[in-house]
């Protein structure tokens, strides 16, 4: 059986908010190391890979591998009944028809219990190769969200270029063009504001802004975001969570001229 208790329901609420635009139905794969999820969007352009390590829960128990096939819209309806600060416990049997969710407020004078029906989801699992990315950029997630939003007003796609000068986000549309350059920046007192650029070779790739805008829905999960790029491979956008848990998005580049 599965029993996983989260100190704050906010984490699961934010995870579902972050991925439900991309993916409507997916398996939550539970095993003794935690709860993972991998799913592509309908057009197979983007992929989300999330893992909540067992250490992110207290306690965490999962005796056997269990796949919880969940409609995220339905899960969100149930999660709306949880306050952000509620303690959230997920429970399921070994071959479950439902997942049980319990929300307790901090003073333990309210306990809400819901059963969410599960579904059989036949999902393809993709192997994500370990990649030594040519460029890695860490920046405030709010900054990335702003850049994505501002450029979306001008164009459908953005070219992310990383070279010795730093990193630039450039786009061109019917009304004109835009270009945002970021340089390395270190704030010892506020590390969340840091911009770090590590590059082993210059990279320039073009991506659809629509998907980047979807990824940015995860901004509330982490103050910093990491962009990893290599020429001719998908972009990885990572929001690191506590306890080495993470939510990562992959986006196939636009190809050709």
């Amino acid at each position: 059986m599965l029993e996983a208790r989260l100190e704050q329901a906010a984490l699961l609420k934010k995870v579902v908010d972050a991925i439900k635009e991309l993916v409507q139905e997916c398996n939550f794969d539970c095993n003794d190391s935690g709860i993972g999820l991998q799913a592509m969007d309908n057009s197979h352009v983007a992929l989300v890979s999330m893992f909540l390590k067992s250490e992110s829960f207290s306690p965490f128990r999962c005796d056997r591998n269990i796949a919880l096939g969940i409609n995220l819209n339905a899960l969100q309806k149930v999660l709306r009944a949880a306050q952000n600060e509620d303690i959230l416990t997920l429970k399921a049997e070994d071959a479950p028809d439902v997942v049980n969710l319990v929300f307790e407020n901090a003073t333990a004078d309210r306990i809400s219990e819901y059963d969410l029906k599960l579904m059989d989801i036949d999902q393809e699992h993709l192997g994500i190769p370990d990649t030594d990315y040519a460029a890695q950029i860490s920046m405030p997630s709010s900054e990335f969200q702003r850049i994505t939003r501002d450029l979306s007003a001008i164009s459908e796609s953005v070219t992310i270029e990383c070279n010795k000068e730093g990193v630039s986000f450039a786009c061109e549309g019917d009304i004109g063009k835009g270009n945002i350059k970021l340089r390395q920046y270190t704030n010892v007192d506020k590390p969340a504001e840091n911009v770090e650029v590590n590059m082993t070779e210059p990279v320039a790739l073009t991506f659809a802004l629509k998907y980047l805008g979807n990824f940015c829905k995860a901004s509330g999960l982490s103050e910093q975001v990491r962009l990893c790029l290599s020429n001719e491979v998908p972009l990885m956008v990572e929001y690191a969570l506590a306890n080495n848990s993470y939510i990562r998005f992959y986006l196939a580049p636009k190809i050709g001229d």
Partner: peptide, 14 residues
């Protein structure tokens, strides 16, 4: 005009 790549052409089915 640039086309959109597909994620399955980079990551293979397991």
């Amino acid at each position: 005009k640039a086309g959109q790549g597909n994620i399955t052409s980079f990551f293979k089915k397991q």
